[in-house]
Simulated scan of single mutants.
Amino acid sequence: MNYAFGYGIAALMTASVAYAGDVTPQKVAFLDGAVSSSLTGVTGDAANGRKVFANRKQGNCLACHMNADQSEQSFHGEVGPPLDGVGDRWSDAELRGIVANAKMMFDGTIMPAFYVDAGYTRPLKKFEGKSILSAQQVEDVVAYLMTLKEE
């Protein structure tokens, strides 16, 4: 047996199992705006979440929120509440719900739903039927937000 081929098959099967575990945007279970279970079945990566948070083509959270932890970034927004200490104010389930679809927690909010793939018009065809963030990116941002504690 070709061991490289066998390892490749094993890696593919592992990746498929991990992907199969992701909760699709239509299946996210909200309870009072919160999402108690991980969308991926694994804990998010806070370091990657910090990058997604600041990335202008992904989370772009700084467009609306001030965050002292990312003082090296320019142009923090003032539309949304400051996120300093947010990890003390909200649980991971509440933050997951807010990041996935804040409209389920805050009636009338202008915050975009980052894990919704239908029910809105996307300006570019290549984005139709796709969520802004993947399930893993939502988990990563939640893990990062949980690190933002009061001093």
Rank of each mutant, 00 (worst) to 15 (best):
M1V: 11
G6S: 10
Y7N: 14
G8Y: 00
A10M: 10
A11I: 14
A15Y: 07
A18G: 10
Y19P: 02
A20H: 04
G21W: 09
G21T: 09
P25T: 00
Q26C: 08
Q26P: 14
K27E: 14
V28N: 01
A29M: 13
F30E: 00
D32Q: 15
D32C: 01
A34I: 04
A34Q: 02
S36D: 08
S37E: 12
S38I: 12
S38Q: 00
L39C: 02
L39I: 00
T40P: 05
T40V: 15
G41W: 08
V42E: 14
T43G: 07
T43E: 06
T43H: 04
G44H: 01
A46R: 06
A47D: 11
A47L: 12
G49K: 02
G49Q: 02
G49D: 04
G49A: 04
K51W: 12
K51R: 15
V52M: 06
A54M: 15
A54T: 06
A54D: 06
N60M: 13
C61L: 13
L62M: 13
L62F: 03
A63N: 04
A63V: 01
C64K: 05
C64N: 10
N67A: 15
A68N: 03
D69M: 11
D69I: 08
S71W: 03
S71Y: 03
H76D: 07
H76C: 11
E78F: 04
E78R: 09
G80F: 13
G80R: 10
L83Q: 04
V86Q: 05
G87C: 03
G87T: 03
G87A: 00
R89K: 11
S91D: 05
S91L: 06
A93T: 12
E94I: 07
I98F: 12
V99Y: 00
A100W: 00
A100P: 00
N101M: 06
A102C: 01
M104W: 04
M105F: 09
F106L: 08
T109W: 11
I110S: 06
I110H: 01
M111S: 10
M111V: 10
P112E: 02
A113S: 11
A113T: 00
F114Y: 11
A118E: 01
Y120I: 03
Y120N: 05
Y120F: 11
T121N: 04
T121S: 08
L124D: 11
L124W: 08
K126F: 05
K126G: 02
F127S: 07
E128T: 14
G129M: 05
A135S: 15
Q136C: 03
Q137H: 04
V138K: 13
E139S: 06
D140P: 15
D140L: 01
V142D: 08
A143E: 07
L145T: 10
M146K: 11
K149F: 05
K149E: 09
K149P: 12
E150W: 07
E150M: 14
